[in-house]
C-alpha cells in the first residue's frame, strides 16, 4: 500500500466513526435531538462518565486496572453533596486527601509489586464504606457553583459538548505533550528501560494514580452537579463504563497505548448507545445485551484494523 496514514489516526478513526454513526442514527430516529437542548440532554450525563473514563485511562496507561472507580466516584459525590456543600474548605481538604491516597496506592502497588486489581478491589469496599457513613440514605445537596457550572448555557454550543472538548484537550496535553505524560506512557510500555534511563517509575506510577484520583474526584463533583444529590451507590456503573470507554476509544490493556481524545469519545459513544437503544424502543431485557453487541462490533472492527496495521508493518 502506498497510502500511508499514521497509525494513531487509524486507531482514533474507529471510535470517531462509531460515534458519528450512532449520532446520525439517533438524529434520524429522533430529529428533536438535533438541537441545542437535545444535544445537551443526550450528552450531559456523559460528562461525569468521560471524566471517570480519562481517570481510568491514566491507570490503564501504566498497565494497571482500577476496579474501585465506581466506588471512588460515588465517595467523591457523597463528599461533594455533604462537606463541599456545607463547609467548602473541609470538603476540598477531604477530596485532596483522597487524591493523596490514590497516589500512595500507586506507590504501594509499584513498591510491593502488588496486582492492582486486588488492591483497587479492596479499596472499593473502603470507599463504599466511607460513602455509606457520610450518606446512609440518599441525600445531600449540590454546592451552588457546581450546579450552576453543570447547568450553564453557553452560547451556540451546549455545556456538555464544551465540557467534553475541554476534558479531551486538557488530558491530551497532560498525557501527550508533557514530559510527565511521556514518562507515564513509557512505564506502561517498558518499566525496566524507564528505570535504566534514570527515571523513577515509582514517581511515574504515583503521578498516574494521582491524576486518576483527581479526574475521578472531578467526575464525582460533575455528577452531583447534574443530579443535585448523592447516594453511596450513585456511580457503581462507572467502573465497567470507564474501562469500556477507554478500550472503545482505542486504548489497550497493556503497553501504555491509550488515547485521551479516544477515551472521551468512547465515553460519549457508550452514553449515546443507551439513548439509541431507548429510541429504538428495545425492551429493557434486551438493552444490556444490545449494548454489549455494540461494544463487540466496535472491538471486532478494532481487531480487524490492528491486523491491517501489523500487515503494513510486516510488509
Amino acid at each position: 500500500m502506498s497510502l500511508r496514514i499514521p497509525v494513531d489516526t487509524i486507531r482514533l478513526a474507529v471510535p470517531v466513526l462509531a460515534l458519528s454513526a450512532l449520532l446520525i442514527a439517533v438524529f434520524w430516529l429522533q430529529p428533536r435531538a438535533m438541537s441545542y437542548l437535545g444535544l445537551n440532554l443526550l450528552f450531559n450525563l456523559a460528562v461525569p462518565i468521560a471524566l471517570a473514563t480519562v481517570a481510568q485511562m491514566f491507570i490503564l496507561a501504566v498497565n494497571d486496572l482500577d476496579l474501585s472507580m465506581g466506588a471512588f466516584v460515588s465517595f467523591a459525590a457523597c463528599v461533594t453533596a455533604t462537606f463541599l456543600h456545607s463547609s467548602p474548605l473541609l470538603g476540598a481538604l477531604i477530596l485532596a486527601a483522597a487524591v493523596a491516597v490514590y497516589a500512595a496506592m500507586g506507590a504501594i502497588i509499584h513498591l510491593r509489586n502488588l496486582p492492582s486489581i486486588v488492591v483497587t478491589l479492596g479499596m472499593s469496599f473502603v470507599w463504599t464504606g466511607i460513602a455509606v457513613l457520610l450518606l446512609p440514605a440518599p441525600g445531600g445537596a449540590a454546592p451552588a457553583w457546581v450546579r450552576s457550572l453543570m447547568t450553564a448555557k453557553p452560547p451556540l454550543v451546549p455545556m456538555a459538548i464544551v465540557a467534553s472538548v475541554v476534558i479531551a484537550l486538557v488530558t491530551h496535553l497532560i498525557l501527550m505533550r508533557t514530559s510527565l505524560g511521556v514518562l507515564i506512557r513509557a512505564v506502561g510500555g517498558n518499566q525496566q528501560s524507564v528505570a535504566r534511563a534514570g527515571w523513577s517509575p515509582l514517581l511515574a506510577k504515583a503521578a498516574a494514580y494521582a491524576l486518576a484520583g483527581t479526574f475521578a474526584v472531578l467526575a464525582g463533583i460533575a455528577l452531583v452537579g447534574l443530579t443535585t444529590s448523592a447516594d453511596a451507590n450513585i456511580a457503581l456503573r462507572y467502573t465497567l463504563l470507564s474501562i469500556a470507554g477507554v478500550i472503545l476509544g482505542g486504548g489497550e490493556f497493556v503497553g501504555g497505548r491509550v488515547s485521551p481524545v479516544g477515551a472521551v469519545i468512547g465515553a460519549l459513544t457508550l452514553a449515546l448507545a443507551g439513548s439509541f437503544l431507548s429510541f429504538l424502543r428495545i425492551s429493557p431485557d434486551w438493552q444490556i445485551g444490545a449494548q454489549g453487541a455494540i461494544l463487540v462490533i466496535v472491538l471486532a472492527l478494532r481487531l480487524f484494523l490492528n491486523k491491517l496495521e501489523r500487515q503494513e508493518r510486516g510488509g
Binding site: 429522533q30 450531559n44 440518599p138 443530579t227 447516594d231 450513585i234 456503573r237 462507572y238 439513548s275 431507548s278
Partner: peptide, 28 residues
C-alpha cells in the same frame, strides 16, 4: 440512578407530555 436519569432525559427528547415515575432514589 444514573441510568434512570439518562432514561428520563431520553423521554424528554422523545417528546412525551408527561412522565409517570417510580424512582430509584428520592433525590438522585
Amino acid at each position: 440512578v444514573t441510568e434512570q436519569a439518562a432514561q428520563i432525559q431520553n423521554l424528554i427528547l422523545q417528546g412525551y407530555d408527561a412522565i409517570v415515575l417510580n424512582a430509584a432514589s428520592p433525590t438522585g
